[in-house]
Amino acid sequence: MAERTRLRDLAPITVGIASLAAIAVVAELLLLAGVLNRYILPLPSDVLVALVRLVREEDILSRMGLTAFEVLTSGFLVILAGVPLGVLLYRFRLMRAALEDWLGALAAAPIVLAFPLFLVLFGRGPKTIIIISFVYGLAPVVLKTQEGLTATRRVHVNVGRSLNMTPAQMFWKILFPSALPTIFTGIRLSWTFCLVTVVAVEFLVNLGGLGHLINELAERYDMPGAYAAITFVILLSMGFFIVLERIQSWLQPER
């Protein structure tokens, strides 16, 4: 029974992956037949070969390390600053009423576009990328922390009151655990923003990690290399999002 359901779940996923492979094969054949232009689309097999070259010659792994360092640094800074700010916003209702909309607007604003400003203010270096990523990623954690605390069910608060809990107990044993899943959602959103911002800024200003590499390869007209690097970064980001989701559900097995 269990095996059959597993098989039923596997079938569509296999079809999904198989159709991607099929597209690659068809593209390869069309390119070989000369129907598609090789200067626009490189041979998928060349792209695969280029991937190996990227690891050997272009140092893609150490670039990945730099990108990861920037993402994680800004990501943890976002948690360190964002969760306490969210708690403050919850605690002071007046602040919340006054500033929640502004924060929402900030979260939706295309802050990345201000990257030239950050370059001028903080110089060209990983520090600047971390700062941009931090600023861009901060709002979701603050807002979600506040939202989670506010959404604490009234009856849970009443259970606490009926047991005469102190405000500190109330916070640590009821409000905070109740808000935790929402806070995690905020962190996941923020870290997604951080990754996207770091890679995008690296690409836009030719600085440091994976984004820079893509730009370099494209400017060298190394088509298979550029395609391979882009594929690599996209797969890496997808893996990153999947891992974030897994961590979130692993941290809360009970829900």
Binding site: G16, S19, I214, I234, S237, M238
Partner: peptide, 20 residues
Amino acid sequence: KAYEPFLYYFSPTPRIILFP
């Protein structure tokens, strides 16, 4: 089931790198 996971996880990737 076959295609939504790709869309879902591809959606937030840094699309600007597709610019080249």
